[in-house]
Measured scan of single mutants.
Amino acid sequence: MTEYKLVVVGAGGVGKSALTIQLIQNHFVDEYDPTIEDSYRKQVVIDGETCLLDILDTAGQEEYSAMRDQYMRTGEGFLCVFAINNTKSFEDIHHYREQIKRVKDSEDVPMVLVGNKCDLPSRTVDTKQAQDLARSYGIPFIETSAKTRQGVDDAFYTLVREIRKHKEKMSKDGKKKKKKSKTKCVIM
């Protein structure tokens, strides 16, 4: 069974824990209790493949930012979460993405942009803004509501699919490099 290491990042209060708990335990946590770091595991079937999701729910508070490099190193894919009623959390996505790329030393890291709290009427981040940002990053965008469960499975499952595509691409690139290195030079 394939294991996928997913990391949920975003500013404090955007609903990272609520999304994760909704996926794992099928219930909505409405009281806000700032996370330092929590880890969850769940076995699911995605596109006919049974897999184990190892999900790291991270601290959004700035005082825990020193811990970010460590979990970013171990993560295979990242859910970059903002709240649709919090423009600052949307603007912060850029910083999370840049930090992930720096730590992973790669421009090509599996990510999904997630606009959470889409059940709320007080939207300050337009869907088109988020779609445009995701398009500019070359990553999928999904709106979710941890409260109603809308888009929750889709967000995590899409990230797994992005990781699969990335692994497939990397193995193809690896095979191309191996083929090239088999060419021999004969000096007579």
Score class of each variant (00 low, 15 high):
Lys16Trp: 00
Glu62Phe: 05
Gly48Val: 02
Lys104Thr: 08
Leu23Ser: 14
Gln61Trp: 05
Glu107Gln: 10
Phe78Gly: 00
Leu113Cys: 06
Gly115Asn: 03
Asp154Thr: 12
Asn86Met: 01
Gly12Lys: 03
Gly48Ala: 04
Thr124Trp: 07
Arg135Tyr: 02
Asp47Val: 02
Gly77Asn: 00
Gln61Leu: 10
Glu91His: 12
Thr144Arg: 10
Arg68Val: 08
Ser17Thr: 10
Pro121Met: 12
Asp126Trp: 06
Lys178Phe: 06
Leu6Ala: 01
Arg102Pro: 01
Arg102Cys: 02
Glu168Leu: 09
Gln25Asp: 05
Ile84Ala: 15
Tyr64Ile: 11
Thr50Trp: 04
Thr58Asp: 12
Glu162Leu: 06
Arg97Pro: 03
Ala66Leu: 07
Ile24Met: 13
Thr127Gln: 11
Val45Trp: 05
Tyr96Lys: 03
Tyr71Trp: 07
Cys118His: 05
Ala130Leu: 13
Asp173His: 07
Cys80Leu: 14
Lys88Trp: 13
Glu143Arg: 12
Asn26Cys: 03
Arg97Thr: 13
Phe82Leu: 07
Gln22Asp: 10
Glu63Tyr: 04
Asp154Tyr: 09
Lys104Cys: 07
Asn26Arg: 06
Ala134Ser: 04
Lys176Ala: 11
Val103Arg: 03
Pro34Cys: 11
Gly13Cys: 08
Phe156Tyr: 03
Glu63Gly: 10
Ser65Gly: 13
Gln25Ile: 01
Arg164Tyr: 04
Gly60Asn: 12
Asn26Leu: 03
Ile36Cys: 12
Leu6Ile: 10
Thr124Lys: 10
Ser145Ala: 02
Lys147Met: 14
Ala130Gln: 03
Gln150Gly: 14
Glu37Arg: 09
Cys185His: 15
Leu19Val: 09
Ile24Gly: 15
Ile46Thr: 05
Ala83Val: 02
Thr58Tyr: 09
Gly151Leu: 04
Gln129Cys: 05
Glu49Lys: 06
Val160Asn: 01
Ser39Lys: 05
Gln150Glu: 14
Phe82Arg: 01
Tyr32Gly: 12
Met67Gly: 13
Asp92Val: 13
Ser122Thr: 10
Asp33Ala: 09
Arg149Cys: 15
Thr58Phe: 04
Ser65Leu: 05
Lys172Asn: 14
Tyr157Lys: 14
Thr144Lys: 00
Gln131Asp: 11
Tyr64Ser: 14
Phe90Thr: 09
Asp132Ile: 06
Leu120Ile: 10
Lys167Val: 03
Arg161Ile: 09
Gly60Gln: 03
Thr50Gln: 03
Arg68Tyr: 06
Lys175Ala: 14
Lys175Tyr: 12
Asp105Ala: 10
Asn116Tyr: 01
Thr2Cys: 10
Phe28Gly: 12
Pro110Val: 02
Val45Glu: 09
Leu120Arg: 03
Gln129Val: 13
His27Val: 08
Ile163Asp: 03
Lys104Gly: 04
Thr127Ala: 12
Pro110Glu: 01
Ile84Asp: 15
Lys172Met: 09
Lys88Val: 03
Asp30Gly: 09
Leu79Pro: 02
Ala134Pro: 02
Thr183Gln: 13
Thr127Glu: 13
Leu19Met: 10
Asp173Gly: 05
Gly174Trp: 00
His95Ser: 04
Asn86His: 07
Val45Met: 06
Glu37Asn: 15
Tyr32Thr: 11
Tyr40Val: 10
Asn86Pro: 00
Phe156Cys: 04
Val45Ala: 08
Ile46Cys: 08
Ser17Asp: 01
Gly75Thr: 13
Ser145Lys: 13
Phe156Asn: 01
Val114Ile: 14
Ile36Leu: 09
Ser65Ala: 08
Thr87Val: 09
Val9Thr: 01
Gly77Ser: 01
Lys5Gln: 02
Val186Ala: 15
Val44Asp: 10
Met111Gln: 00
Gly115Ser: 06
Leu133Cys: 08
Val44Ala: 10
Gln129Arg: 12
His94Met: 15
Arg164Phe: 04
Met72Tyr: 09
Arg97Ile: 15
Arg135Asp: 10
Phe82Ser: 12
Asn116Asp: 02
Phe156Ile: 15
Asn86Trp: 02
Met188Asn: 15
Pro140Gly: 11
Gln22Pro: 15
Ala11Val: 11
Thr144Ser: 07
Leu6His: 00
Lys177Ile: 10
Phe28His: 10
Arg123Leu: 10
Asp153Gly: 11
Ala155His: 00
Phe28Cys: 11
Asp154Leu: 11
Leu19Gly: 06
Glu168Phe: 11
Arg164Cys: 04
Asp57Glu: 12
Ile55Thr: 10
Lys5Glu: 02
His166Met: 12
Lys117Trp: 15
Asn26Gly: 08
Asp119Val: 01
Arg73His: 05
Pro140Val: 09
Cys51Pro: 06
Thr124Pro: 11
Asp92Gly: 05
Ile187Pro: 15
Asn85Ser: 15
Gly75Gln: 04
Thr124Met: 11
Met111Ser: 00
Gly12Gln: 05
His27Lys: 06
Arg97Gln: 12
Ile187Asp: 15
Arg123Met: 10
Ile187Glu: 15
Thr87Gln: 14
Ile46Pro: 03
Val8Ser: 01
Gly10Ser: 00
Val7Met: 06
Lys101Phe: 11
Lys180Ser: 15
Met170Leu: 13
Asp30Phe: 06
Glu143Gly: 02
Met170Asn: 04
Ala66Asn: 06
Glu37Ser: 06
Val109Gln: 01
Val109Cys: 05
His95Ile: 10
Ala83Gln: 11
Cys51Glu: 05
Tyr96His: 11
Lys175Phe: 05
Tyr64Gln: 14
Asp132Gly: 07
Gln70Cys: 05
Gly151Glu: 08
Tyr32Leu: 09
Tyr71Leu: 08
Gly174Cys: 13
Phe78Trp: 03
Val160Thr: 04
Ser181Glu: 15
Leu19Tyr: 06
Ser171Arg: 15
Arg102Asn: 03
Ser136Val: 06
Ala155Asn: 01
Glu162Arg: 03
Thr127Met: 14
Lys184Tyr: 02
Val109Asp: 00
Arg123Ala: 14
Val114Asp: 00
Arg68Gln: 13
Val112Thr: 00
Leu113Ile: 14
Ile24Tyr: 08
Leu6Lys: 00
Glu31Asn: 13
Val81Ser: 02
Tyr157Asp: 13
Lys175Met: 13
Leu79Phe: 06
Ser65Ile: 05
Asp92Thr: 14
Ser136Met: 08
Leu79Glu: 00
Pro34Asn: 13
Lys88Gln: 11
Gln43Gly: 07
Ser122Arg: 08
Met111Cys: 03
Thr158His: 05
Asp154Phe: 07
Leu79Asn: 00
Asn86Phe: 01
Pro121Trp: 05
Cys185Asp: 15
Asp33Leu: 08
Ala59Trp: 04
His166Asn: 12
Glu49Pro: 03
Ile24Phe: 10
Phe141Thr: 05
Asp153Thr: 14
Thr148Tyr: 14
Ile163His: 07
Gly60Tyr: 04
Phe90Arg: 01
Gln99Cys: 08
Val8Phe: 02
Val9Ala: 04
Ile93His: 02
Met170Asp: 10
Gly48Glu: 08
Glu62Gly: 12
Glu162Asp: 04
Gln25Lys: 12
Lys101Pro: 03
Pro140His: 12
Ile46Asn: 08
Glu91Ile: 02
Thr74Pro: 05
Leu23His: 14
His95Gln: 12
Asp92Ser: 02
Lys88Pro: 02
Glu62His: 09
Val29Cys: 10
Ile46Gln: 01
Gly115Ile: 10
Val103Asn: 09
Gly12Phe: 04
Leu52Phe: 11
Lys175Gly: 08
Asp92Ala: 14
Tyr96Arg: 01
Ile93Asn: 10
Lys165Ser: 07
Gly15Pro: 00
Lys182Thr: 13
Arg68His: 09
Gln61Ala: 11
Asp154Cys: 10
Tyr40Ser: 11
Thr183Trp: 02
Ala11Ser: 05
Glu3Asn: 03
Glu37Thr: 05
His27Arg: 09
Phe28Leu: 12
Arg41Glu: 10
Cys185Met: 02
Val103Trp: 14
Cys51Met: 05
Lys16Met: 04
Lys42Tyr: 05
Asp38Pro: 00
Ser181Gln: 09
Asp57Cys: 13
Lys165Glu: 09
Glu31Ser: 09
Glu98Leu: 02
Asp33Ser: 10
Ser106Leu: 12
